[in-house]
């Protein structure tokens, strides 16, 4: 089957039931999306499918045939740049393991909502667990990114 991965058409040869996460990680060597739970409970594997956030661990590869998949390695554009820059400026990551999922989710939030409130942030980001509990800085970084995007 064919998918568009990070802007490039790719021919995928995999069992149709194989989750997108393991196709990305094991077959294609794209390890930015992480395995944290395998059950769509932690958000570490978050990617964008046709621009929407999705949990790659619970997405069958057959279900993304013909669709546009973007991972942390390929995410681009002004929102992505600003999010990643504020993440760095505020030293958000600790271990960093969850941060691909956090960054991908924050990009979705800010693409849809240029001025999120704390409540908006909590609602959009609650599915992405950070065991280092960098949540305080995630919130601050999203506000900061929103400011820069508005400017």
């Amino acid at each position: 089957m064919r998918i568009v991965l990070n802007g490039q058409p790719r021919e995928i040869d995999a069992d149709p039931d194989k989750p997108l996460l393991w196709v990305l990680r094991d077959d294609l060597g794209l390890t930015g999306a992480k395995f944290g739970c395998g059950q769509a409970l932690c958000g570490a594997c978050t990617v964008h499918i046709d621009g929407e956030p999705a949990r790659a661990c619970q997405t069958r590869i057959a279900d993304v045939a013909g669709r546009n998949v973007v991972t942390i390695e390929g995410v681009s554009g002004k929102v992505a740049e600003i999010v990643q820059a504020t993440w760095t400026k505020l030293d958000v990551p600790q271990c960093g393991y969850c941060q691909s999922g956090q960054v991908m989710s924050a990009i979705n939030l800010l693409s849809a909502n240029r001025k999120p409130t704390d409540q908006d942030i909590d609602a959009a980001m609650t599915g992405v667990i950070c065991r280092c509990n960098t949540y305080h800085r995630i919130r601050a970084a999203i506000h900061e990114a929103a400011k820069l995007l508005g400017a």
């Binding site: 390890t31 395995f35 990643q84 030293d91 958000v92 271990c95 960093g96 691909s100």
Partner: peptide, 26 residues
Amino acid sequence: RRYDSRAKSTGRQDFTIDLRLPDMLT
């Protein structure tokens, strides 16, 4: 600033789970 924040914000920090060796089994 921490020097690893950029890599960790762009998916480029690698961990043991990301290691790929030739012929490696899981």
